[in-house]
Amino acid sequence: MKQAVYGLLLYGFLVLPPVAALLESIMIVHMHMQMPLLVLSGIFMARFFQIHFPRFFEKWNKNGVPGVLLFMVIWSYWMIPRMMDETLSVQAVEVFKFISLPFLAGVSLRDSWSKLGSSAQSMVFVFLTVVFLFMAWIYIGADKQICNNYLEVEQKTLGWGSLAFALIMIIYFLQLFYIDQSEYK
């Protein structure tokens, strides 16, 4: 339960208008910091929902697959440049971001994770890696400004940042193979 409180505090911090404005003013920070932090706050807050609504998760997310699919859909949705751009122009989209990332993506990821087998967990990592690589390709490759709110140089930065994240995910994967994880349980 303590976790849920920390999650709520993090969420409350991220919602503060000056914090949101600062993080959203830099394209890559918006996508690779604010959005993952929102998911993270949801992951923490999930404890609250799991404790108070166990039946709901039991019924709808029995084997973890629906939850993880929901996570993937929400996450992919926010990787679309148009959507990120709209959060800055349309208030309702911004509100949807602050609700969907923690409560739909974060909570369902947490609830699904332990229910998934290790191969399904690996699939999530592969998914994220592929998404990052794809974004690197789009954002480095695009030779036009694709967002109204962000400059081309920020777009390129986001591309290189995505590439770096993809490479780090691959490094993470490799170390899973080379280092025996069973010791750390």
Binding site: I26, I28, V29, K156, T157, W160, A164
Partner: peptide, 12 residues
């Protein structure tokens, strides 16, 4: 991750 996040903006 922390290094990538911190350095990509200024270096770019």
């Amino acid at each position: 991750m922390v290094v990538a996040m911190a350095y990509v903006v200024p270096i770019m």
